[in-house]
């Protein structure tokens, strides 16, 4: 693992094939080459209910991609399908393919535990463990087989906290409970915790929705810094936030079928400035101009 606090080298997963194989051009994506994560005709079901239909998109390396759309359009569902967090819901099922570095993560031979270590997650509500700040960060490394000495672990914790721009605020109280921090600090602790297991993608599910504007700003600045080393996919309700931080934005919408079921679908996935200034689809324009949603 890493000895220096600021080493953030992303090690490509060894068990997944190299990028390039089976990368399909997506209909709505305009990106070139392969992405770190690609979905192809992905449907997500909860029991018989189809929550999201036919999502095909490609997330680029070292970029912030934002998912926006009205409530119930399934953007969080899509996000959680990308690291198999939906597996925790017994009735959830994913059809189609989600490829990480070119390999389908829904292949029966793939262990979701490994996927989640490579593709970290930050949740809507800050959820630090009821343990010390230090243990909050060290635990992820420990359970993933961290082999370093005690001082290596200290370096790892410090590095993760520094990357999450939290080190200066907590360096004197690492033994205090993670729950003693403010909401914004807790969320940065959760980001540090996700970084510490050395993932190369970080999924963020509305990470700022429980925070005040100042804390939100700090998280956004942090995301822009992290972009250098990680690929970030963020779900947000806040269109300004998407516009401020993301390189590409996906707009999801929801349609009612004849039985009254609401199924989400991808409308368009374009570079952010394009999507906000000259959206290709009418639904996108209606949404970003505030005509609905």
């Amino acid at each position: 693992m890493t000895d220096t606090p600021d080493a953030t080298v992303v090690t490509p997963p060894t068990t997944v094939p190299n990028p390039g194989s089976g990368a399909a051009e997506s209909g709505t994506s305009s990106a070139q080459g392969t992405g770190v994560i690609e979905t192809e005709n992905m449907d997500v079901f909860y029991g018989d209910f189809k929550a999201v239909a036919d999502v095909t998109m490609k997330f680029a390396f070292n970029e912030i991609s934002a998912l926006i759309g009205p409530s119930g359009c399934g953007k969080s569902t899509v996000l959680r399908a990308l690291n198999r967090m939906n597996d925790l819901i017994p009735s959830a099922r994913v059809d189609g393919e989600v490829r990480y570095h070119g390999a389908n993560i829904y292949d029966p031979s793939v262990d979701p535990v490994e996927i989640r270590r490579r593709i970290g997650m930050v949740f809507q509500k800050p959820n630090p463990f009821p343990k010390s700040i230090y243990d909050n960060i060290a635990w992820g490394a420990k359970i993933n087989g961290f082999k370093g000495s005690k001082s290596d672990m200290r370096d790892l914790v410090q590095g993760a906290l520094e990357q999450a721009a939290l080190w200066d605020e907590v360096k004197d109280k690492l033994t205090e409970s993670g729950l003693s921090l403010s909401g914004g600090q807790q969320q940065r602790l959760c980001i540090a915790r996700a970084i510490a297991t050395q993932p190369d993608v970080i999924l963020m599910d509305e990470p700022c929705s429980a925070l005040d504007p100042i804390a939100t700003l700090r998280i956004e600045e942090l995301m822009l810094e992290l972009k250098e080393n990680y690929s970030i996919i963020i779900v947000t309700h806040n269109m300004q936030q998407a516009a401020r931080v993301s390189g590409k934005t996906a707009f999801f919408n929801v349609e009612l079928d004849t039985t009254g079921q609401r199924t989400g679908y991808l409308v368009e996935f374009s570079p952010t400035d394009e999507l906000f200034t000259s959206p290709r689809m009418k639904a996108t324009e209606d949404y970003i101009t505030g005509r609905f949603g």
Binding site: N83, M85, L88, V113, E114, R116, R117, R118, G120, M121, F123, N127, P128, F129, W139, G140, I143, N144, C190, R193, A194, T197
Partner: peptide
């Protein structure tokens, strides 16, 4: 979720 999300 936090635990599983870290690859535990």
């Amino acid at each position: 979720q936090a635990g599983m999300g870290l690859g535990a």
